[in-house]
Nucleic acid binder design. Structure first.
Lengths: 202, 202
DNA sequence: CACTAAAGTGAAACATGTTTCACTTTGGCT
DNA sequence: AGCCAAAGTGAAACATGTTTCACTTTAGTG
């Protein structure tokens, strides 16, 4: 996450506030610009679109998760416990600001190719965190050096399930609690499968 | 899937054509209405929004998948093979019209609560298909009666992974081939985990 | 056939994301 | 201080999703 120049940060923070109050539609570009004290043209020199802005907000939220996670003791005796705890924390953190979370999810799922690099970065960071939770390492921005292919695969799949579960939550298909529960079940099955695969192949 | 009244069907078909040509943005409501030969007001009496329209298009695409799937011999000796084949077919079917698929995915992920019922229906149908592939049953719109909780869970999780993979494909994060490959790996791990869970619990 | 309610129409109006452009301000350099 | 390029500004214009509404057509009924 780059050091954000003050004007840019103000814009993103304005978007976060407006999104938290009224969701995606409440993030009106004119309002964001006014709230941040910049002209509309200035906004569009820094961000390609509304979605771009909200993905920038995601980077900020990820930073917050990173800080929270870095402080916390990373507890759990088993891989399953650690991973489940991690998703519990991440899910609660995100859904604490539900309207913001929904707005960001919508932006992420918009499929705009311009956003792909930022989204890939986010995926990478999340996958790294999951791997660290798996292994019980202290969280860090530095990815572990010796993550096995299997661990990486499982982490990636868990992240996919998490994303889909959040989108479902976002549409009102299920509750926050259900998201956490889904992650626990997914982790159980994937970790069992992983253990078996290790036994066979390695 | 209800029998669609002719005007409504024409509207959805127009949307499908426009979406396939130029993606989400090319589905302009004025154009859709003109193409379908109805007034804009008529359109808005039948659909709540652009997203609503595209989710209706999803229902049509699902019907097509259903027909394709019902014809085909459902081959594969193992659960893994059958499930992998199913996702291969479903993914190819969807991504054959990439712009349409992207447009639909965007609508589905919009998080609009008005769409939740239709989306839930789609999820239900997909999960049922996956269960049938798992068990090697001939595909049918009627859900199997005796799907175990574990089978239902695994089917649901695979569907989540599929959705997330498609969104990633939609953003250009990975190719169609990668989506299919991801499904194979996810199925391998989940089915192994499932087999273990069965051994333990039942 | 005459009537009525429901459906459709057409056009305008509105809301908001995005672009454009001529002008102004700012920050660093000599 | 004076200058220049980059950044910012403000306002208008544009594109397109959505709403509204007065009028017309259509289909079913007595």
């Amino acid at each position: 996450m780059d050091e954000l120049e003050s004007r840019t940060r103000r814009i993103v923070e304005s978007a976060v506030e407006l999104a938290e109050e009224g969701g995606f539609e409440a993030v009106r570009m004119r309002d964001v610009a006014a709230h941040a004290g910049v002209a509309l043209g200035t906004f569009y020199k820094r961000f390609k679109s509304k979605e771009d802005l909200l993905v920038a907000a995601l980077e900020i939220e990820l930073d917050k998760l990173a800080k929270k996670v870095a402080q916390k003791e990373f507890d759990g005796a088993t891989r399953l416990e650690r991973v489940t705890n991690f998703f519990d924390m991440a899910t609660k953190g995100l859904t604490r600001k539900p309207n913001l979370a929904r707005a960001i999810l919508r932006a992420v799922a918009s499929g705009d190719p311009d956003l792909t690099p930022k989204i890939a970065k986010f995926h990478g960071a999340m996958t790294a965190y999951i791997s660290q939770a798996l292994r019980g390492e202290r969280f860090s921005d530095e990815p572990s050096q010796d993550v096995t292919k299997l661990e990486a695969t499982v982490s990636f799949l868990m992240q996919q399930v998490w994303f889909a579960a959040l989108v479902g939550w976002s549409s009102g298909l299920h509750s926050r609690k259900t998201v956490v529960e889904q992650m626990r079940v997914a982790a159980e099955l994937l970790l069992r499968g992983m253990a078996e695969a290790q036994r066979d192949d390695g």
